[in-house]
């Protein structure tokens, strides 16, 4: 296999919503096994960039390559690539009509063609991994936010993705639940999963990130390491942002 090639390649990516340039010419490479955290003020385009990676948001122009394959608009190819990219959302987006275990087995059965038994085994395994095996038969509405988010992570992991995208996974959580989700993400990072996270959790950046991308007005202002970001930010805009979020 092509070990040295980056697993995600983004080339000249633009995404416009009418006059608003949400992503304004972004290029970056992300190597396999790296944990990249995208930070920036709200409206800086970081979520849109993340959603462009699996084409949940169709880019206005530019290219996204996943593991050496260029994403096109062909529906079938898109679905195949998306199955390799797990995504975790700010609002969890569990399927409320299904139990926890059915949430995790649905796509395994429909997309991966696994049997009910195999899919259930994998689901229970993943639930154990995120620390809530006892909730298998509960409905999402009976879970706390932190538990729902962990189920969402388990649901994505059950597909054996090559890449995991996290779109502000802790922003909708009560403070005491943030840690349980971050712990799961930290474990995942240590296991070598390629992760792209949009997050404001500076603690997570410090402890898990290999690279940090600071975005503003749809552009990448700075692409550096956590040490570089905290100790030696290059741009005034980055310094200002950091001073604002680290002040409290």
């Amino acid at each position: 296999m092509t070990e040295n090639k980056p697993i995600i390649v983004i080339k000249d990516l633009y995404k416009h919503f009418g006059d608003i340039k949400a992503v304004d010419g972004v290029s970056m490479n992300i190597d396999k096994g790296k944990v990249v955290v995208v930070i920036g003020p709200s409206g800086s385009g970081k979520s849109t960039l993340l959603r462009c990676i699996n084409h949940l948001e169709e880019p206005s122009s530019g290219e996204v390559w996943i593991d050496g394959v260029k994403m096109t608009h062909a529906a079938k190819q898109l679905n195949e690539i998306r199955a390799e990219i797990g995504m975790v959302f700010q609002l969890f987006n569990l399927f409320p009509h299904l139990t926890v275990v059915d949430n995790i087995t649905l796509a395994q059965k429909v997309i991966r063609g696994r049997s009910q038994q195999e899919a259930t085994e994998i689901a229970l395994e993943q639930l154990k991994r995120v620390g809530i095996p006892e909730k298998a038969d509960a409905y999402p509405s009976n879970l706390s936010g932190g538990q729902q988010q962990r189920v969402a992570i388990a649901r994505a992991l059950a597909m054996n993705p090559k890449i995991m995208l996290f779109d502000e996974p802790t922003s909708a959580l009560d403070p005491e639940m943030i840690k349980e989700v971050l712990d799961v993400m930290l474990d995942l990072a240590q296991e070598g999963m390629t992760m792209v996270c949009v997050s404001h959790e500076m603690g997570f950046v410090r402890s898990a990130a290999d690279e940090v991308v600071f975005m503003d007005f749809g552009k990448v202002v700075e692409h550096t390491t956590p040490e570089g970001l905290f100790n030696n930010p290059q741009h005034d805009r980055t310094k200002l942002f950091l001073s604002q979020i680290l002040e409290h």
């Binding site: 949940l56 679905n79 199955a83 990219i85 995504m87 969402a152 994505a156 597909m159």
Partner: peptide, 10 residues
């Protein structure tokens, strides 16, 4: 979005 992100078609 969640369903599509798991690889499901429309």
């Amino acid at each position: 979005e969640a369903a599509r992100s798991l690889g499901m078609s429309y």
